[in-house]
Design a protein around this nucleic acid. Structure first.
Lengths: 219, 219
DNA sequence: TAGATTGTTAATCGATTAACAATC
DNA sequence: TAGATTGTTAATCGATTAACAATC
């Protein structure tokens, strides 16, 4: 059975958010030459209990061996499969301000699977200029081009006012996953789309909240 | 009583993460000319139940009026106070790659309170060049300069290998809050520091996970 | 074998929500 | 007043963890 292909849907969002953290730590362990890992060793640097990890993995039918733990390569492959990292994805970035520009350049070893294929902006001064060999298209062309190129993931980095409209266009063009970096939250859609809202200032507000002594506990 | 200054520490991380979302929605309502808002109206676009909102606010002693709801200006001011947005903050950005560069330029109406004061990199080609009128310093100068300028928030956008070391230097220089955009997670410190790990690829992995049909439910 | 580590069950812990009296 | 909306209590729901038999 391919890991992750069959499982009941009692898997929580919390579990889902831990998987990438496991994966990153596993990459590190592999780079150190480890061949296997126990749930305790994996969890320690992440501040996650061993039982939690075993439970998370069991949801997906990913098991280790008593006395030995988990085979590192197998575990990495399993989590990559669960997260859908066995294949490549195409992305369109909308809004080539500072964040959009930063994201366009953004690359890393794990991100080779994500290819930025289309760029859009509505600023006439940017349209038809290039970033990394990619032409910035007029946002008016969005629906047509996104559909044509069968883009998987839309990344929104526009000003707040434009967010919802852009999201709607993306969905109409067949995009099923949106990563939203604007300050405007995108709500529910009738269509089956997954939206990840990633407002960078939210993180800053957590920091300032902490700095004001309002949070005596560590998270 | 200043909102947020006195409260027991049963406030959950979940509550804390909703506050910025409330705030953003409240700004929008204010821009529309609203003067008051009920918990139901506030929660609807966010997909949050009215009882949840009233409970969250009650932790901080922020109350509304029956039949009327919450006075918009008062509610905004209260949440701003809770989140520590009544004052300004200074930031240092370490790592002027694409993300670091994007963050340096990153501004918005709500972010006027955050002033980028210092930039650091270890690349000799970048050192002593300028971004937005700010000199990029050698990362070797970090401890000295950060201490001298009494920086509040450190933003890490370096390659993974450098992350922990940079974090330690920041803490030694007296920084109490770190926003970490690298792929390497920063764990616990002995000192009282709050660390927000904001690995951008984690969000991408959620999208790919969804795209693989592994997540039948909407979140 | 001995004992380290597993997967799972049951208990605990914590967060959300329904219910409702109070009140503007 | 009438009834919309509050703040809070109690019930529910869900996620984490402790306990432990199985096993490599």
């Amino acid at each position: 059975m391919a890991a992750g292909s069959l499982f009941d849907n009692k898997v929580s969002l919390a579990t889902m958010e831990r998987l990438p953290r496991y994966l990153m730590e596993l990459y590190r362990l592999r780079a150190q030459g480890e061949k296997n890992v126990s749930s305790q060793i994996l969890g320690e640097p992440l501040g996650i209990k061993d039982t939690q990890i075993r439970k998370d993995l069991s949801y997906f039918g990913v098991f280790g061996k008593a006395r030995y733990g988990y085979h590192l390569d197998f575990l990495i492959e399993s989590i990559e499969n669960i997260l859908g990292l066995a294949q490549n994805y195409t992305m369109a970035i909308i809004g080539l301000g500072n964040i959009g520009r930063g994201l366009t350049y953004y690359k890393s070893s794990e991100l080779e699977k994500f290819e930025v294929k289309l760029l859009f902006d509505k600023n006439p001064e940017l349209i038809n200029t290039e970033i990394m060999g990619l032409v910035i298209h007029d946002v008016k062309e969005l629906k047509k081009l996104v559909k044509k190129e069968k883009i998987d993931i839309g990344i929104i980095a526009t000003p707040d006012e434009a967010t919802i409209e852009i999201a709607e266009s993306l969905v109409e063009a067949g995009v099923k996953a949106i990563y939203n970096f604007s300050h405007a939250e995108i709500g529910e859609f009738e269509e089956e789309v997954y939206i990840e809202n990633a407002n960078i200032s939210h993180g800053l507000f957590k920091l300032t909240h902490y700095l004001n002594g309002n949070w005596p506990r560590k998270y």
